[in-house]
Structure formats: C-alpha cells, structure tokens
C-alpha cells in the first residue's frame, strides 16, 4: 500500500485532501450560476468563470458509471484491480478503485450503488468507493 503513488497537492486543492483526513469528501460548488458542484477542485467555476465558489461536503453516495479491470502493473497494486469512474449523487464524476469487491465483471454491475470510504496512504487519506452497504443515509 505504501508504494502507491501519492498525489502532488497544490494550494488550490489542499482543502480537498484536508477534508479527506477528516473523513469528508469535499467538492467545490459555484454560487454564481446554477452550475452546482464540480470536479476536480479549482477556485473558479468551470461553467461560468465566476470566482464566487464555495466548498460543500458530498453525500458520499454514488453509482458505478464505468470501469476497467486492469491487468497492467502499478506501484502498490496487485493486478488485476478495478479502475472505476463513479458518478456522485451531486452529478460529478471522479475516478476511484472499488474496494471490498472482487475485481471481476460478475461482481461489478454498472450503475450499482456505491459509497465513499477512505484509504490510508502515507500521511494522507485517499477517497475511495465500495459497494453501498444499504445503511440508512
């Protein structure tokens, strides 16, 4: 695990990684247009260009939008492993692995419900997703 790549964090994205350490998935959202949440973080709205943006906590719920099962090597990963794109409830997409789920097509059904979790990696917590446990939200 410790061999896995660390993100290079910049001042504009520090809040996102600070939030993850507290178990929160934080998104930027525009307050000037109806653009809503967007990803990845940046201090302006990619739809209208306004700097009037805020930070909101995502619900942590999403669905499996698409994926591949990678048989290619990656530091700290044991192939085959799942590389997925999650559609968050807030309507933005982000990359993730799918934890607590076998890396085979039978177990990975498109549009299945997912929930956020966090993977400890060095000093950081990395947002990850796993099949939803069905608990009350």
């Amino acid at each position: 695990m410790s061999d896995r790549m660390q993100p290079t964090i910049y001042s504009e994205t520090q809040f996102y990684w600070d939030g993850a350490k507290e178990g929160k998935l934080l998104l930027n959202a525009c307050t000037a247009c109806d653009g809503g949440a967007y990803f990845p973080p940046r201090p302006f709205c990619p739809k209208c260009g306004s700097r009037d943006v805020t930070v909101q906590e995502a619900s942590g719920k999403g669905t499996l939008h698409s994926y591949v099962i990678s048989h290619m090597p990656a530091p700290g990963y044991e192939p085959p492993f799942t590389v997925a794109v999650v559609m968050l409830e807030e309507g933005v997409k982000m990359m993730s692995n799918i934890l607590d789920c076998p890396a085979n097509p039978e177990a990975l059904e498109l549009d299945m419900a997912l929930e956020v979790t966090f993977e400890a990696r060095g000093d950081l917590m990395i947002p990850q997703f796993r099949p939803a446990t069905g608990g009350a939200a």
Binding site: Q6, P7, F39, N97
Partner: peptide
C-alpha cells in the same frame, strides 16, 4: 490534475 486525481488510482498506461 491527471496526476493528482487519476494516476493515484493506478491507471498508469493507455490500456487502462
């Protein structure tokens, strides 16, 4: 952005 928000999940080559 690709490094910070995608590569960390292991898709390091075009096939994945």
């Amino acid at each position: 952005q690709q490094q910070e928000f995608e590569a960390i999940y292991g898709p390091l080559f075009p096939p994945s």
